[in-house]
Nucleic acid binder design. Structure first.
Length: 598
RNA sequence: UGGGGAGUCGCCAAGUUGGUUAAGGCACUGGGUUUUGAUCCCAGCAUCCGAAGGUUCGAGUCCUUCCUCCUCAGCCA
């Protein structure tokens, strides 16, 4: 992207340390870039790569992005941004059975939403692994020619058995010593569709006794007659991730290939593939003497994936939540999917702040969910105008106030930003106030309305409670009070009478009733499904509460996705899907912090 | 039990080639500002770096042993 410096210097982490070192030593300085991905011959025709580093975010388009992906996205795109490099968005679509265009579209949308792009140096860097199938096939032939791969006709079960165990070496496949010619022939037949799915695979020939199971002749191509979202029915054989990924990185001239910890064991094979393909073919092969890939080769680095308390991020569990209808869909505001978070009112800035705040390391860790919430509060506090909403209304009648009188009160749109101006909130004799702002028998430390007590109606007058009414069930329905005429906010002497409590209100005559959804965390346990619990048992039964609130009139015009702070409550967003003109529906994004615990 | 990783304050996380009193953030605790019990501001918060030994004038950083946790046996990614 550009060479602009980040406003706040990014925290040091081990990956930045590696990049700093590489840059200082010129590790990747000799790379050429021909303007598009390609093999050594292709790249050699290009100029020295203008990108100091290349990273990539390589999702498989088989599901929706979630908060864990946001960490990786911020990391990879952030690194590219900070180091005058480029981050490629690459779809790792090597398994047609699971992948769909719908996911591709959704992923593109969410990465953009997070604030990142892949246009740099005059090019778009949006790629598909499936566009490299030709090269991967050619590279596989090269491995066969070099005696480094063979076609195995063992069944999947046989392969599993002969692979050995964690502590015992595996056994060579009986097909391991076929001739190069025969391997080539069979591999071509695989591609031509002459063999059934599962009847054979191409395997790398490495070492069945390797202590690293991933080096025991891993499969690199399988036969799979499936329609591919990008290549259609062109292929009936598809490369495996372990083989495809290093090739993809190399073709794209990736310098730092960053993935999560579980791929550490895979790194030796990643390097094995690249090193073999960077070697010039032996004379026995003839034809092309040029190595397929050129040095310097991409390097893989691993970091710890995100674990968040009160959240599940595993694909399997998310699918279950959606399919079993525990949530309303992939964009349910309670879900940790980015689509859900966006609907909830979480912001891209908040996610980027979160990513910066949690850092990057190799230590397994659990991030407290409140860190994410705090980040959202921090950006929302800055960005959101204040409004008044009474979520659980009871009547407050000012008995000594003139009937039918309407008086203007002035409420600032943002207490720290006077330039945002004020709006008029009408005051009348009958108001709605919050049920929890009145207590007949107040707990210790309560300083809101109590019988005979005084409180300020925010932006209005100080009132004194005179009486209250209850219904048959004993619930308070109406509170009566008298106002003190000389105490109106903004008038001289308004502060003559000091009160500690300050409550919000809306005029019953002017307010309007609207649907508000109070979201809470989806799970009630910090570690859903820990021990031998079913994670579904840890679902929070009160993760959403639909209410009808009394809102100040100006809220009627809220646009979908517009955020507000409802004073003394929290941050709310007009639902991007369900809001209609003049009738927005609000989602609670996150509450305000509350030092007052009862 | 084989291989690969990780263990620094309640939660994260910096700690170059060993060198003054172990960054920072979040949380927490005090105090201040405030017509949101919000925000903001100030202050405090690890004699200690998984444990035990050792090397050294000096170790979170080097060596040895041990402990704990994560991860790998898909023709998934």
């Amino acid at each position: 992207m550009s060479s602009e410096k980040p406003t706040i210097p990014a925290a040091s982490n081990f990956i930045r340390g590696i990049i700093d070192r590489d840059l200082a030593q010129g590790t990747n300085a000799s790379r050429h870039w021909a303007g598009s991905p390609g093999d050594a011959t292709h790249q050699a025709t290009g100029a020295p790569d203008p990108a100091k580093i290349r990273t990539r975010f390589p999702p498989e388009p088989n599901g929706y992005l979630h908060i864990g992906h946001a960490k990786s996205i911020c990391l990879n795109f952030g690194l590219a941004r900070d180091y005058a490099g480029v981050c490629h968005l690459r779809f790792d679509d090597t398994n047609p059975e699971k992948e769909e265009q719908e996911y591709v579209d959704s992923i593109i949308e969410m990465v953009k939403w997070l604030g990142f792009g892949w246009d740099a140096f005059g090019k778009s860097h949006l790629y598909y692994a499936s566009n490299y199938f030709d090269f991967m096939y050619r590279a596989a032939e090269a491995l066969i020619n070099a005696g480094l791969a063979f076609v195995d006709q063992q069944s999947a079960d046989e392969m599993r058995i002969t692979r050995g165990t964690l502590t015992e070496a595996g056994k060579n496949s009986p097909w391991r010593d076929r001739s190069i010619v025969e391997n080539l022939q069979l591999f071509h037949e695989m591609r031509e569709g002459k063999h059934a799915d599962g009847s054979m695979v191409l395997r790398a020939k490495i070492d069945m006794a390797s202590p690293n199971i991933n080096m025991r002749d891993p499969a690199i191509y399988r036969i799979k007659r499936a329609h591919h979202h990008n290549t259609g029915d062109t292929w009936c054989i598809y490369p495996m991730y372990t083989y495809a990924h290093p090739v993809e990185d190399a073709l794209e001239q990736i310098t730092h290939s960053i993935c999560t910890l579980e791929f550490e064991d895979q790194r030796p094979f990643y390097d094995w593939v690249l090193e073999r393909l960077a070697e010039p073919p032996t004379e026995a092969v003839g034809a092309n003497k040029q190595a397929l890939l050129a040095h310097p080769l991409p390097k893989q680095y691993e970091f710890a994936r995100l674990n968040l308390t009160y959240v599940v991020l595993s694909k399997r569990k998310l699918i279950q939540l959606v399919e079993d209808k525990h949530v309303s869909g992939w964009d349910d505001p309670r879900l940790p999917t980015l689509a859900g978070a966006r609907r909830r009112g979480y912001t891209p800035e908040g996610f980027r702040m979160f990513a910066d705040r949690i850092g990057v390391s190799k230590a397994d860790s659990w991030i407290e969910y409140t860190i994410l919430e705090d980040c959202m509060r921090e950006v929302l506090n800055e960005a959101s105008e204040r409004r008044i909403a009474v979520l659980d209304p009871i009547k407050l009648v000012i008995d000594n106030y003139t009937d039918n009188k309407t008086e203007d009160c002035f409420a600032p749109n943002h207490p720290q930003k006077p330039e945002l101006g004020k709006r008029v909130v009408p005051l009348t004799k009958e108001l709605w106030i919050e049920r929890e702002d009145f207590e007949e028998t107040p707990p210790k430390g309560f300083f809101r309305l109590v019988p005979d007590g005084m409180v300020r109606l925010r932006y209005g007058y100080v009132v004194k409670c005179t009486s209250f009414e209850k219904d048959a069930a004993g619930k308070v329905t109406t509170v009566h009070c008298e106002y003190l005429p000389d105490t109106k906010s903004g008038t001289p002497g308004a502060d003559a009478i000091k009160v500690k409590g300050n409550i919000h209100w809306v005029s019953a005559q002017h307010a309007y009733a609207a649907e508000v959804r109070l979201y809470d965390r989806l799970f009630k346990e910090a570690h859903p499904g820990s021990g031998d619990n079913d994670f579904l048992d840890d679902l929070n039964p009160n993760s959403v509460k639909l209410i009808t609130a009394q809102l100040e009139p100006s809220l009627k015009g809220a646009k979908p996705a517009e955020t507000f702070q409802f004073e003394r409550h929290g941050y709310f967003v007009a639902d991007r899907k369900d809001s209609v003109a003049d009738k927005p529906v609000f989602n609670r994004t996150v509450t305000l912090r509350d030092a007052w615990q009862k």
